[in-house]
Design a protein around this nucleic acid. Sequence first.
DNA 1: TGATATATGTCATAGTATAACATATCAAGA
DNA 2: TCTTGATATGTTATACTATGACATATATCA
Lengths: 161, 161
Amino acid sequence: MDALGFETHDHDHCIADTVALVEKRCLDSGLQLTAVRKRTLEIMLEEHRALGAYDVLARLSQEGFGSQPPVAYRALDFLSKNGFVHKIERLNAFVACAYPHADHSPAFLICRECHLVAEAETDPAQGMLAKIAASSDFVIERAVLEAEGLCPTCRKQGAAT
Amino acid sequence: MDALGFETHDHDHCIADTVALVEKRCLDSGLQLTAVRKRTLEIMLEEHRALGAYDVLARLSQEGFGSQPPVAYRALDFLSKNGFVHKIERLNAFVACAYPHADHSPAFLICRECHLVAEAETDPAQGMLAKIAASSDFVIERAVLEAEGLCPTCRKQGAAT
DNA sequence: TGATATATGTCATAGTATAACATATCAAGA
DNA sequence: TCTTGATATGTTATACTATGACATATATCA
């Protein structure tokens, strides 16, 4: 239940590792990790921020891929349908998955100051929503858990000011 | 922790009651529940569905209020800032608050079939997000909890098909 | 009543997302 | 290997969501 994302780490390494892992998972599942899709994943991994579809599109387009919105949306759809990228509804934006090893139900902490997004894995069966759903006989298929606030770094800086 | 919204109830009554309650709360807090704002609230209360800002705008405009997007967005902003309406991030839409008696941290169950939205009150300190935030030293200011799935009615209908 | 803040309305534009269709590429069986 | 059906890419066009900026009107209160 730890929420990585607010500490530094070996970034290049984590990108390469994740891409390799995703490649393997696609191969195993018969998914086509095509050039645009792979490049999109890399672009997402280069940030721990949420990127808008149009930010991604700008970079893809610069690099010789198509220049129209569906190019980015389709790559992002593929990646998020397969859990390699998540959509942050609060921001209408996307973030690379921090735990690409398996399917999971993510929760996010979004810093309103520096816009960093930290991801944590949750147990979907244990949360508030599960309890509410059970009491209403509602079947949850997807859950959005997003908290907005101040990350430790920004909070300290704010206090210092 | 019960999630009302999937049962029938005396609707006209609930609208009138809620409007009266909101009027009182505004008076007490020195908030101006102006004509557009009140009408917007009523429009929202007539549905247990999420309405887009442009749906609301269309109705307001029909009824002689302004016809431009800010008219609807400003009324919805006022209502949601004060907790009388909530934004459903997943849908980029708004829903009338089902518990307008006090400030609270809402969670939503959204039926993907009939688009009904049920609201439940939660204890923000008890959920997943609170635990994650505590372990990361993150300060939550606002939480988005939205589950998408099938409501009891639609599930039964689906099974019958 | 006059001064200040708040609210409404408009025009203009920015940002997010998808439908529809042509072309290209891939995967698998004949 | 060739064909065929499915998948993926790229385009144009358009729809949906949201806000900035500014003028006018209304409310609040000294």
